[in-house]
Design a protein around this nucleic acid. Structure first.
Length: 668
DNA sequence: CGTAGAGTAAACAGAT
DNA sequence: GATCTGTTTACTCTAC
């Protein structure tokens, strides 16, 4: 009897985490505006040629660029020399060809001349021309070189494959392939970085028409490390050249801070916005909660850290914040230079985003390849993984990976911003409507929902279903459902009366929830078929809905559920190639264990009963449900509770009856 | 604007 | 009688 009291934990959730920071950070607004003024952009661009206000030394820029290129080339050489030997296939041809690059680069590099000397010798236009010339040369040679290297690597890869195919075991082949692929990847990255570097230089110092012509067609990538050089060239003419050397190369660790701050637009306050700051009032400063960065002190400034100005390329030492603010307002006021720098920074961010999208795509493809091979339909047993996109829960332009879920994200990716608003009646849960695989989303954002007082973007129905399906025997008492809610969601640790009522309401209302009399009372099960039945009408009816589903859903979640579904080809609607993007299908979807077993069996009969009934249903089901217990108990809960746990397997015959008896229901 | 789905509130009844 | 459980209705909001 006495269902043990629901022990409602009405504790207020530890809702500290909800601080979705100000998403204000739109440098675009001011920066773009200023840039759009045209004068800023073109004026800046022409600065190299005509605008000789002495702020920037073209010679120096040239010098840094070349130093940088040289350094990159050297590093590349080193890497190639050491890296190529690692796979165990070291042939002399490579070292021979590799020599070409440093020679050519060194040839172009005016190592003997200091920037000042060059500046004295050459006029700005001359320098400009020289710079362009050398860039073109360098670019050409590098491209050739890269191409050669790639070809060679491909060749090696091919031969390795052939050989391995004959004699080597599969694993060895895999290893070698991997090694080579890493080589390739590395090289591609380097190439992209270098090319982008060149491009960016062009962006800053060249006329757009001149610079962007050949360069824009090149693959773009971002090497955060080369930014300081760029900035130095512009903003800090006096910087010694060693600095650039120090920071060059592929030392990603060294650039980590830069990279993260660049790559997290929402966290980075727009540089221009600070110009309006009146004075160094710590309280006025942006209350950012950037835990990853070094400037965590309460009275800090995003552009101030370690006692120096972090304006790109500046590094001016400032004793305290006040001084820094002063410096900021004087040195980095709103002028052409700052505007241009801001624009470049925007470009950097864009490039990073593009790069991230590419890499994410690549990752997905890799994972799809590794985990979704048809020979072994792996049940997504991997734990919650951190995808490449995890660091960027929002805002970034990697469409397919928007589902990538941080382990403890600030905002679960599946959540649209709208659904984040936990306050007020949150209608329109996205998931249920689209048959969202709530479990995958939950698996990914488990911690988030558990701790953050955020309303989950799922319907009560889907949540209830999930709760039930998570249990081994697929049945729960009402109280257990309650407990699941409170356990899984901080949000449901309050307002108990409301949501519990809603839960009961949903249990009763939806035909997919079947009440089964048990020895210990009544338990609730899910009639998967009924559950699935609820959606098709919408999706069949309107193609736009399908589209919306794809775009609106967290992609991974979509994939998670429907992939399995498609495997059984029980969703003819979604089987169309357009629905699941093959490129990103099979992505980073750490499908929760439960998802695999549970909702995945969208019964074959679904197709048969597919004719979606849009007609308003009649009202009759409750009687039916009430009759059910007797037979249901026999059917659904065969002696061993673990038997065929899912109702669907036991269901069909019964469901068919159900179906026949109940033409419709669901009076909402 | 109408419709449908979803959330909320509430009344009510039966069971414990 | 209080509480839990379950059903039903009504209303509102939102998206389509």
């Amino acid at each position: 009897m006495m269902v043990e009291s629901a022990s409602e934990t009405i504790r207020s959730a530890p809702s500290g985490q909800n601080g979705v920071g100000s998403i204000s950070g739109q440098a675009d607004g001011s920066g773009g505006g200023a840039g759009a003024a045209g004068s800023g952009g073109t004026g800046r661009d022409s600065a190299a040629g005509a605008d000789s206000n002495g702020e920037m030394s073209p010679a120096e820029l040239l010098h840094f660029q070349q130093q940088q290129a040289l350094q990159v080339a050297r590093q590349f050489l080193l890497q190639q020399a050491s890296g190529l030997s690692s796979p165990g296939n070291n042939d002399s041809k490579q070292s021979a060809s590799a020599v070409q690059v440093p020679v050519s680069v060194a040839m172009m590099s005016p190592q003997m001349l200091t920037p000042q000397q060059m500046q004295q010798i050459l006029s700005p236009p001359q320098l400009q021309a020289l710079l362009q010339q050398q860039q073109a040369l360098m670019l050409q040679q590098l491209q050739e070189y890269y191409k050669k290297q790639q070809e060679q690597l491909h060749l090696q890869l091919l031969t390795q494959q052939q050989q391995a195919g004959k004699q080597q075991p599969k694993e060895a082949l895999g290893n070698k392939q991997l090694a080579f692929q890493q080589q390739l990847l590395q090289m591609q990255q380097l190439q992209q970085q270098h090319l982008l570097n060149l491009q960016r230089q062009g962006l800053v110092s060249l006329q757009p028409s001149q610079a962007s012509g050949p360069l824009q067609t090149l693959p773009q990538a971002v090497c955060p490390t080369d930014l300081p050089q760029l900035w130095k060239g512009e903003g800090a003419p006096g910087q010694p050249a060693e600095d650039s050397v120090k920071q060059e190369g592929l030392d990603l660790t060294g650039s980590a801070t830069t990279a993260t701050s660049f790559a997290a637009p929402p966290k980075v306050s727009p540089p221009l916005s600070h110009h309006t700051l009146p004075n160094g009032q710590p309280t006025v400063l942006t209350p950012r909660r950037d835990s990853s960065s070094h400037e965590e002190t309460p009275g800090s400034h995003p552009l101030y850290g370690h006692g120096e100005c972090k304006w790109p390329g500046c590094e001016t030492l400032c004793e305290d914040l006040g001084q820094f603010i002063k410096h900021l307002n004087t040195e980095h006021a709103l002028d052409d230079r700052s505007t241009a720098q801001c624009r470049v920074q925007m470009q950097v961010v864009q490039q990073l985003e593009i790069q991230l999208a590419k890499e994410s795509e690549r990752l997905q493809a890799m994972m799809a390849h590794l985990h979704m091979r048809p020979s072994e339909p792996k049940p997504f047993s991997q734990p919650v993984t951190i995808s490449a996109a995890d660091s960027f829960p929002d805002g970034l332009v990697h469409p397919p990976t928007s589902a990538a879920a941080p382990v403890t994200p600030l905002r679960p990716p599946g959540l649209s911003s709208a659904s984040l608003h936990s306050g007020g009646p949150a209608r329109r849960r996205s998931s249920d409507k689209f048959c969202s695989p709530i479990s995958s989303e939950l698996a990914q954002n488990h911690e988030f929902y558990k701790n953050a007082d955020v309303r989950p973007p799922f319907t009560y129905a889907s949540l209830i279903r999930q709760a039930i399906l998570e249990t081994p025997d697929r049945q729960l008492t009402l109280n257990e459902i309650y407990n699941w809610f409170t356990r899984m969601f901080a949000y449901f640790r309050r307002n108990t009366a409301t949501w519990k009522n809603a839960v009961r309401h949903n249990l009763s209302l939806h035909k997919c929830f079947v009440r089964v009399e048990n020895v210990k009372g009544a338990v609730w099960t899910v009639d998967e078929r009924e559950y699935q039945k609820r959606r098709p009408p919408k999706m069949t009816g309107s193609p736009t809905l399908v589209k919306n589903m794809i775009s609106g859903l967290s992609y991974g979640a979509l994939n998670a559920s429907y992939q399995a579904a498609l495997a059984e080809s029980s969703f003819p609607l979604l089987s169309s190639p357009g629905v699941l993007n093959p490129g990103s299908a099979g992505s980073l979807l750490p499908l929760s264990h439960d998802e695999v077993g549970a909702p995945v069996e969208p019964l074959p009969s679904n197709g048969s009963s597919s004719p979606p009934r849009l007609s308003p249903p009649q009202y009759s089901h409750q009687v039916q449900v009430k009759e059910e217990p007797a037979e249901a108990e026999e059917d659904r809960r065969p002696g061993p509770p673990l038997g065929p746990p899912n109702p669907s397997t036991a269901g069909p015959p019964e469901d068919r009856d159900l179906e026949e008896e109940l033409p419709g229901e669901e009076l909402s």
